[in-house]
């Protein structure tokens, strides 16, 4: 069983690194697809399409890497992350629709941006993981 946990630790480290590489690649392709049209290829639709397609492909790789990371955790760690995901999903739905309503009803002057929602989801997930980890420590 000792060997088993060496494998467990090594696998967790490998999965974490793998997920970080995919995430960095996804952020890089997102930056290229976002800023490329204006600064590199002057809104050429072919290049923009290729950049967006590449971003989607790498995004799918990141999703699969995240799934592999979660499946590689032990049962308590997985529970902590699953609980955090449940809260983040709820906040995304409720927060996202409320944010949209604030925009539609002109209560806020600025347009509702998807980036604001993504930041909210990320922070909610992060805070939930920290709180859940403390709860079980």
């Amino acid at each position: 069983m000792k060997e088993e946990n060496k494998n467990f630790k090594a696998q967790t480290l490998r999965n974490t690194k793998n997920l970080s590489y995919w995430t960095m690649a996804w952020v890089a392709t997102m930056a290229v697809a976002s800023f490329g049209p204006e600064f590199i290829w002057d809104y050429d639709k072919v290049y923009s399409g290729i950049a967006i397609g590449l971003n989607i492909a790498v995004g799918i790789g990141m999703i699969l890497a995240n799934r592999k990371f979660l499946l590689g955790l032990d049962e308590l760690q997985r529970k902590i992350h699953m609980d955090a995901m449940a809260i983040a999903l709820g906040v995304a739905v409720v927060g996202g629709l409320s944010y949209s309503l604030l925009d539609v009803t002109n209560i806020i002057s600025a347009d509702a941006e998807i980036s604001g929602l993504v930041i909210l989801i990320g922070l909610t997930y992060l805070v939930s993981v920290v709180i859940n980890s403390k709860r079980y420590s």
């Binding site: 069983m1 000792k2 088993e4 946990n5 060496k6 494998n7 467990f8 032990d74 049962e75 308590l76 760690q77 980890s133 079980y136 420590s137």
Partner: peptide, 14 residues
């Protein structure tokens, strides 16, 4: 014990 069972120390503690 965590090493022997293939889980994290946090799990054993919890």
């Amino acid at each position: 014990l965590a090493d022997a069972l293939g889980v994290s120390r946090q799990t054993i503690n919890a």
